[in-house]
């Protein structure tokens, strides 16, 4: 089974991936799968009835709002970062956590580099398929590079302005 990096109680560790990521043109394998938003719209209900756990892959530019009513039924949202430079899905992660209260796994896929670890964790992403071969130790270090942060965000970190007031 392939592995990926998962945060457990805020600590990055290898985890076995129970989900199979399936492209639109591929036949569905057995078990738990991550499928595209398009495919989820047509086949999602049927797959859930079969008792599978489902994940939806959200491309950069696809709206989280399209999934709002399905979130309680989903186990994973895989956010695609097609290029290091493409930051649309940071907003998606924040909205999923803060506005829509998604409790499942938010996984970063695509060109996912260690440089983004801190941003992703802060926006509520808790699982990662690193593109640069990072280990969990490297990921953990990168995600906690900064002892202080200046903004309130989806993670539990205390922003500088609160630290100062304490």
């Amino acid at each position: 089974m392939p592995t990926y990096i998962k945060l457990k109680d805020g600590v990055a560790a290898w985890a076995e991936d129970a989900f199979t990521t399936v492209a639109d043109e591929e036949k569905l394998p057995r078990g738990d799968v991550i499928i595209s938003l398009e495919r989820f719209k047509t086949e999602g209900d049927h797959l859930l009835v079969e008792g599978r756990s489902l994940g939806v892959r959200l491309e950069a530019g696809e709206a989280v709002e399209d999934l709002v009513y399905d979130l309680p039924r989903l186990s994973v949202i895989a956010l695609v970062f097609p290029k290091f430079k493409d930051g649309r899905n940071y907003s998606s992660a924040r909205l999923l956590r803060d506005r829509y209260g998604f409790k499942g796994e938010i996984r970063a896929v695509g060109e996912v580099l260690r440089e983004q670890a801190g941003h992703m964790v802060r926006c509520g992403v808790d699982a990662f398929e690193p593109y640069d071969g990072s280990t969990p130790e490297q990921w953990q270090a990168a995600a906690h590079r900064y002892r202080h942060v200046y903004q309130r965000d989806s993670d539990a970190r205390v922003p500088a302005f609160v630290e100062r007031a304490q």
Partner: peptide, 9 residues
């Protein structure tokens, strides 16, 4: 500074 959401605009 190092805004989590708005650093890859």
């Amino acid at each position: 500074s190092v805004h989590p959401e708005f650093s890859f605009l």
